[in-house]
Nucleic acid binder design. Structure first.
Lengths: 223, 223
DNA sequence: CTGCCAAGATTGCAACAGCATTACGGGGAT
DNA sequence: ATCCCCGTAATGCTGTTGCAATCTTGGCAG
C-alpha cells in the first residue's frame, strides 16, 4: 500500500508518515505540486493525500490536472480550510473525500481504507493465441490454465510475436524487442531462443507454431 | 438518479426529499431498517443515505448486512453521532462516507456526487492464497486460523505478492511496495526479506511458495 | 532434376549474472 | 537492558544465455 502525501507542514508530514508506516503504508512526501505530478506519473499510488495551501499554489488545482492526465487515483483533501462550502468546492473539483485539520490519524486511516475499498478498475488486456493467454503488462503466460515459466528472453520473443500474431515480425524488430542498445549480439542468439521457445511451446501443447520466413523474420500462427 | 433515505426525523426527511427532488433526484424514504433491506433488494439505488439512531436499531448494522447480501451500493452515513471515533466506527463497518448533522444540502450533494464517481464495485477485503488469509487494510495475516505476525517489511512483500497471486510481480514493483523514494537500498535487502519470509511461510505451513523468475521478479503460488 | 549455398534449426557447453542463505551489528522499541 | 527488525555483505549455488559447431531446409540456377 503506497500513498503520496502532498503537504507543506513538515512536522505534520513526518508525524503522518511515521504513523502510516506503522500501519504498513509506504508514503512518499513532497511539498510541491510540480514534484507531486512527476511522482504520480512515475509511481502507482493507491491514494493521494493533498493539502490546499502549498508553496507553489492551491492544492485543489492539482486534481483536475491529474484527471486530465488520466490518473484516477483516489484523492483525499487534507486541509485547515474546512468550511462547508470549501469542502463542496474540493469535492466538486474531483476530490474523493475531504478531511479538515486537525484530525485524528485513526479517522484519516479509516477514510483511506474506505477509499481503498473502491479501487480504480483497470482492465488487464490479455492476448490470446491458440491455447495461450499472455498478459504483456505483467509478463505472465498461461497455456490453457497451466502457467508457463519462461525465461526472460524467450518471454520477450513470445510477446513480440504474439503482439502481432499471424503477421510477420522482422528479424530486426525481434532483436530490438529482446535486446537493448547496450547488449549487442554477435551470433545466432535469437535463433537459439526461437528454437528453445518452440520446444517449450510444443511441450506445453500451446496450440501455436512459430513459422520462419526466409530472410525476413518470423510469425506466430495458431495450429 | 435514485437514492434511498433511511431516516427517522420526518421533517428532515421531507426537507431533504424536496431539495433532492429539485436536483432531479428521486428519493425513496423509510424509517425502518427492515423496510430498507427489502427496498434495496427490490430496487437498484445509486446511493444510500443512512441515519444511525433508528426505531428498529443502530443504522450501522445495516451496512454489513447489505454487503453480505452482495449489495455494493455506496452508503453515506448521515447522523448526529459525529465524534471522530464514531466516524471511524462507521467507516470501518463499510460506510463510504460519513457526514455529521447538521449539514448543508450542498455538501451532501457534493459528497454523493463524489461517491458516484467511484467504481460501483467493492474489492474483496480478504485475499486468500493456500492456507493464508490476508487483510491488507488491517494488516492481519492468518495461516489457517493461526495468526502470523510478520515484520513490517515482510508483510509488505507478502501483500504485494498476494495481491497478484499466481502472477509475476516485477522486482521493481516489489521494491516500490516496500520502500519509498527516500529509502534507497544499496544491497540485496529485498532478497533477504524474501528469504526470511519463505522460511516463515514454510514454518507456518502456509501452503504457498514464492517462486523466482530470473531477471524479472517473483510470484506467489499455491503448493 | 540436381546440385549448391545461404539461412535457419538444434543442441552442448561454459561463463556469469542473478539469486539464496546466513551471520553480523546497529538501532529502535518495549 | 533486552529483544527483534532489518540493512549489509560474504559465500555458495544455479539457471539462463551467448556462443559455436553441426545438421537441416529451402530457394535458385543450370
Amino acid at each position: 500500500m503506497r500513498l503520496l502525501l502532498i503537504e507543506d507542514e513538515r512536522e505534520l508530514a513526518n508525524a503522518l508518515s511515521a504513523a502510516l508506516s506503522k500501519q504498513g503504508i509506504v508514503t512518499d512526501h513532497t511539498l510541491y505540486l510540480a514534484d507531486a505530478f512527476e511522482l504520480t506519473l512515475q509511481n502507482k499510488y493507491d491514494a493521494i493525500l493533498l493539502d490546499r495551501r502549498l508553496p507553489d499554489g492551491e492544492g485543489l488545482t492539482f486534481i483536475p490536472k491529474l484527471r486530465r492526465a488520466g490518473v484516477d487515483t483516489p484523492v483525499l483533501v487534507l486541509t485547515a480550510r474546512n468550511e462547508p462550502m470549501e469542502r463542496v468546492e474540493g469535492l466538486d473539483l474531483g476530490a474523493d473525500d475531504y478531511l479538515g485539520k486537525p484530525f485524528l490519524v485513526e479517522e484519516l486511516m479509516a477514510r483511506v481504507r474506505a477509499l481503498l475499498r473502491r479501487p480504480p478498475t483497470l482492465e488487464e488486456q490479455c492476448i490470446r493465441v491458440g491455447r495461450l493467454h499472455i498478459d504483456p503488462l505483467h509478463l505472465d503466460v498461461l497455456s490453457g490454465s497451466v502457467p508457463l515459466d519462461l525465461p526472460k528472453r524467450e518471454l520477450l520473443v513470445l510477446q513480440a510475436l504474439a503482439k502481432r500474431k499471424g503477421k510477420t515480425v522482422l528479424r530486426s524488430t525481434l532483436e530490438d524487442a529482446v535486446y537493448n542498445y547496450e547488449e549487442e549480439i554477435q551470433s545466432n542468439a535469437l535463433d537459439a531462443h526461437i528454437s528453445r521457445l518452440r520446444k517449450r511451446l510444443a511441450e506445453a501443447d500451446a496450440g501455436v507454431t512459430i513459422h520462419n520466413i526466409r530472410g525476413v523474420g518470423y510469425l506466430l500462427r495458431e495450429e
